[in-house]
Structure formats: structure tokens, C-alpha cells
Design a protein around this nucleic acid. Structure first.
Lengths: 335, 335
DNA sequence: CCGTGTTTTTGAATCGTTTCATGAACGGAT
DNA sequence: ATCCGTTCATGAAACGATTCAAAAACACGG
């Protein structure tokens, strides 16, 4: 089966290719009768536009790429959902790439996206080592918006949540509940979100003379939380509360504790981060630091289109949202 | 900033464009010294291939699209993960599209994918109304593999799990535990998976004279489960067990029951479907019907590439996997 | 120095659109 | 009839890569 092209349609309708193109792109510029004839031919032949050719001509694709650390993490799916409507209403398409917290995968994606001449890029970089790659893209006129990564100097727009503040909220909450020894579970420390949340937590602990023990994990997933907690339970004089770098870790921790017969929150309180849907549905509903996820995505997309529209004389903007603590059963008890 | 093309590289290296192309695609056919010169020019100018142009020439893209009902559902992310390695090792790229169980969104995606001349398509259709659209694609030489939708006649390869059998497993398990009145929660009934699971469940109920009550939901999500259970609790003579069409619904049901003070499994048992990670981590670890998710994705990708390789004389294959029941605390009690 | 065979390089054709300067067709006013 | 202004349609020139027949460059034996 040979694909039918505009030329075929033109021949069938007895017009030139230019006219077929006009029917598709500026119908009002074509006479009623001609338009009908062309549309009939299109339907008849089952003609489908060739997007590669369009893009080649246009020089850009209509795709906005979102590179996330983990598609399975509900946090990112919500960010994506927040961005989609705006992109689509602007005639664009969203494509989601999963770096899996792996710099090499991320780099592979970036190379590909550049070859595809994407319209723009929303990205949560794995770590700082990606910076030069990302700047390469924006150097090639592909606008980049950093998501959930606002700290530090960088020549891009960004949306972020104040993670240091989030860390403080979690720690304050635990300190108010009377905890004097807290564990932080999360990693790798190279991930800025992890570092910031820990930093905020540490600040509060130091301010209020509370002991802090850090359990570094190789990733931010369920498994990591479960394992960290098992390690923790092996120790003497263990913490009475854990603050997890995200909710997946917290759910893992919760399960780890439950399986070892440790009662939450009676014997160990838990605070998570992200407030994903599953947090509220967990074994013991999880207290968690909530980020305005959809808004993060929406704003990121907005910044991207602003940059595209403003062109040369665009000034980068860094939008920072404040998180809020949602208290649930997992921290319900005063010590 | 003007994008640099092969022509620029050719000029800078003092060779023809044909040679530059060869350096990129068949390096061994170019003299050592020339190759070095060209590569230097590429690095120097920061040249990046234009994928649109390549595809236009090639007539096909290297993208394998996976259209899923809900990206936030871990079931699908696992299927995607299963497919990815195979696709990538074949030099392809995976793009994930979320139909959100909405036929219109699905159609929009299909149109776009066809314009993009994707290499192939793995899809879990929203319902039968998509059939004609999907056939349009395969009519245009885009191989299609149906995922988790093997029943019925269709001119495609497919991978599926025997959902009727899965429904039977769940019901049998509950009947063995002594339940005499069971609720099924899920919908819309137009989704084949829902219909099949219910069918299997109904078979067993009828065979063993157990009463079955069906609560139809508008979707397969957390919210739906919670609401269905609330409705159920309003009734007299309520069921002693619920079988949910998937784990998200089951988690919702679990929360709904817990919030109303109904003890699981003592006062109401629950069986879910999919055995997502969160099932084991739930308030009460959920019994669930497990599907070989990653294998589903892997096999689907394999069938796709087989079809591409075999070309004209390809015979469609329908692979059906058997699910297994994972019993956990949510059905731990005999009545 | 020629002929022959092998390795490299060339340059033009091609993929399917969009765009745009040009021209045709038509109606109405003079 | 002529001229002007609209409204439509045309067709060729991009866009940037790949491919391939043909030319060029080179090696080597006689």
C-alpha cells in the first residue's frame, strides 16, 4: 500500500496541491465549491497529512516534552495533567519522557528531543550534571522551563515549591507533637528536592534541639522506604518519628513498620511529602506535605508559552509556590 | 539563531552533504581522515540532525506509541515498562498516550499518531467504538497490537489476560471463604475488561448459588470505589464481600469502608484486580488478581516487531496469559 | 604509462508539505 | 470596450536529510 499524498488528492479533485493545502490550513480562502470537491477527494482516498513534512517545512514540531523523574510517581502525573490542557488549547501536543532518575536515560531523551526540534521542554533534571545538556537545548532556541527545581542560578524560567519550607513544616509538625528524635529517609542526596527537604528539616531540628538521624536511600521509591525502616529498627534508641522525602518512601516505611509490628502513630509517627492520593488511602492515612501539583504543571506550561511568545526580549521568571502540611492519622498522637 | 544543517557542516568540512550523511549513518564507508574532519565540524558547529527530515525521507518514524486508559494506573505503567526495553533495543522510541477512558481523546491521539506515521501501535481501546479507527491505522500499514483486549474477532495481534478466568478466581476465593452474598463494583460495563471480570464472577456465583449484586461505576478509579461502597452501606442486608474491577477501585472501597467503621475483612472482605504495588501496601493488604503486566508489555512489543519483520505474509497471533490470585489480609477470614 | 579493480566522494533526485508571487477569472463602474 | 478591484487558483521554490548511480581518486601489476 502506497501512502497517498497531497498530489494524489489534487489530481483526484482536479486542482493544484497548493489548493489542497489551503483547504486544510485556510479553508476560508477557498471557494465553497472547490473546497467541497477537495474534501470529498480526501475522504475518498483516505488521505492523511504527513506530519514530518509539515514539521520540516515549519522548522519546529508542535510537541511540548515533559521529562520527569518517574512516570509511576503520581506527583508527576498530576504535573503533566496540569500542563496538558494549556498545551493542547494552544494547538500543541504533550509527550512525556521518563528519565527514571538515570542521567544516561535523561541524556538520551534530550538528544532525541533536540533532534525532534520540540517546541519546548519542561524538565525536572536528575541532578546538576544535566545543566550543560539543558543549556545546549535552550542555546538552540528551545525554551526550557525547570519544574520543581527553582533554587540555584540558571538561565531558565522555573516553577518550584519551596522545599526547604516544606521540610521545615514537616519537622515543626513533629516537634510540636513532642518528638525529640527524628529520622529522615530519602536520597540520593544529589537530588535537590531531597537535599532541600532535609535542609529545612535540619534547620528546625537544630533550632529546637531535636536529634536528627539521616537514612540515605538509593532512590525515592516504595522499596527504599521499606528497607530504610528495617535498618532503622535494628538500631537501639530508635527515633519516634520519620520524615520521608516523598510519599512513596513513606508508604514503604509504613509497611515496613507495620510488618515489624510497630504501631503507627503510637510507636512511630510518619510524615510524607507530595500528598499523593494514595497517602490518604494508606494503612494509616499519611500526614504529608502537599504541593500544588497541577498548578505547578499549568504554570510551567504558561511560562513556556510566554517565553515563546515574547521571543528575544523575554525575561526569565522563577515562580515559587508554598507547600502546606496536611495532618492525618499518621501523626495524630502527642507523645 | 539559525539552525545549522548538513550543508553547513559539509561546507565547514570541505566535503559534500552526501559524505556528511555517510559519516553519520555508515561511518565505515568514509575514509578515516575525512570522517575525523567531518566530526570535528559537527562538534564545532553544534550540529544536530533534523529528525523530521529523516522521517520524511524514510517514510516512517521510529516511534512506537502506546495508548493506555490511564497513565496514573500502575498497571499501565508496568505494561509500558515491559515494552520499553524491547523497543529501544530495536532502535525505536516509546511514546505514551493517555486516553483517559475518553473516546474523543483517544480518537484525537489516533489521528495524530497516524499523521506522525508511527512505526506501530500498542493500544488498550476504550471500547468497541474505536475499532473502525484502529482498523484505519492498520489499513494504512501501521501494525497494531491490542493490549489486554483479546476477546472477540479482530484483525490484529493481541496480548491479553483471561479476564473471565480472573473473575472466576476472585469469586471462587470468596465463595471458599464462605461468603453467600457478593458485590461487584466496577464500570462502565462497555469496557471489556469490566464485562469479562464480572462475567467470570457471575458464572461462579450462579454455579454455587451465591447472590451477586452489581454496583456500576462511571470509571475505574479511587473515587468510584469510595462512592460505590457508600451507596452499598446504605442498603439493608448488605454483601459480606466485594470484588472490585481493579485495585484503584478496591482501594477506594477499602477507604470508604474504613471511614464508615466497617472492619475489613471481619465485616466485609475485599478482592481487587491487577495487584498493583499499592495493593500490598494498603490499609489492609489487599487480596488481588495478579496479571503478568510487564510480560504483557514485552510480548506486545515482540508481536509488533514480528509483524513488522514478517510484512505481507504475517499471521496474527493472540496470546492469552492466565492470571493468578494473590491472597492477603483483606480476605483472610473464614465466615 | 596503461589498464584494472577498489575505495571514496560527489551531486542530483526525492520525500510531502507550506508559502508566496503571479496570474486567471469575474463583476461592476466608467 | 476598458479598467480596476476582488476573489481564487496555480506552480515552483523552499525545508533538510538520504540514496545511489556515476565520477574521481588511488593502488598495483605488467
Amino acid at each position: 500500500m502506497t501512502t497517498t499524498s497531497m498530489k494524489d488528492v489534487a489530481r483526484a479533485a482536479g486542482v493544484s496541491v497548493g489548493t489542497v493545502s489551503n483547504v486544510l490550513n485556510r479553508p476560508e480562502a477557498v471557494a465553497e465549491e472547490t473546497r467541497a470537491r477537495v474534501l470529498a477527494a480526501i475522504a475518498d482516498l483516505g488521505y492523511v497529512r504527513n506530519d514530518s513534512a509539515r514539521q520540516l517545512r515549519a522548522g519546529r514540531s508542535r510537541t511540548v516534552a515533559i521529562v520527569v523523574l518517574d512516570v509511576a510517581n503520581p506527583f508527576f502525573t498530576d504535573v503533566v495533567r496540569g500542563a496538558e490542557p494549556l498545551v493542547e488549547s494552544a494547538g500543541g501536543v504533550v509527550t512525556v519522557c521518563d528519565s527514571g532518575e538515570d542521567v544516561r536515560r535523561e541524556r538520551r531523551h534530550l538528544e532525541l528531543l533536540e533532534e525532534q526540534r520540540v517546541l519546548g521542554l519542561l524538565i525536572t533534571p536528575v541532578d546538576d550534571s544535566s545543566a550543560s545538556w539543558i543549556e545546549r537545548l535552550s542555546g538552540h532556541d528551545i525554551p526550557v522551563v525547570l519544574v520543581d527545581r527553582g533554587a540555584g542560578r540558571h538561565p531558565h524560567c522555573s516553577v518550584a515549591v519551596d522545599d526547604v519550607h516544606g521540610g521545615r513544616l514537616a519537622a515543626q509538625h513533629l516537634v510540636e507533637r513532642g518528638h525529640r528524635k527524628i529520622a529522615f529517609i530519602g536520597g540520593p542526596a544529589a537530588i535537590p528536592q531531597v537535599a532541600d527537604r532535609l535542609a529545612g528539616c535540619r534547620e528546625v531540628c537544630e533550632e529546637s534541639g531535636v536529634e536528627l538521624e539521616v537514612f540515605a536511600t538509593p532512590g525515592l521509591n516504595f522499596q527504599a522506604g521499606r528497607e530504610a525502616v528495617e535498618e532503622m529498627l535494628g538500631r537501639e534508641d530508635r527515633p519516634t518519628a520519620v520524615f520521608c522525602a516523598n510519599d512513596l518512601v513513606a508508604l514503604g516505611a509504613l509497611q515496613g513498620l507495620t510488618m515489624q509490628g510497630v504501631k503507627v502513630p503510637q510507636e512511630c509517627a510518619i510524615v510524607g511529602y507530595d500528598d499523593i492520593d494514595f497517602a490518604a488511602a494508606a494503612a494509616v492515612p499519611l500526614s504529608s506535605v502537599r504541593q500544588p501539583r497541577a498548578q505547578l504543571g499549568r504554570t510551567a506550561a504558561q511560562l513556556l508559552f510566554d517565553e515563546i511568545a515574547e521571543g528575544r526580549d523575554h525575561t526569565h521568571r522563577n515562580v515559587v509556590f508554598q507547600p502546606e502540611l496536611i495532618a492525618r492519622a499518621s501523626t495524630a498522637l502527642e507523645l
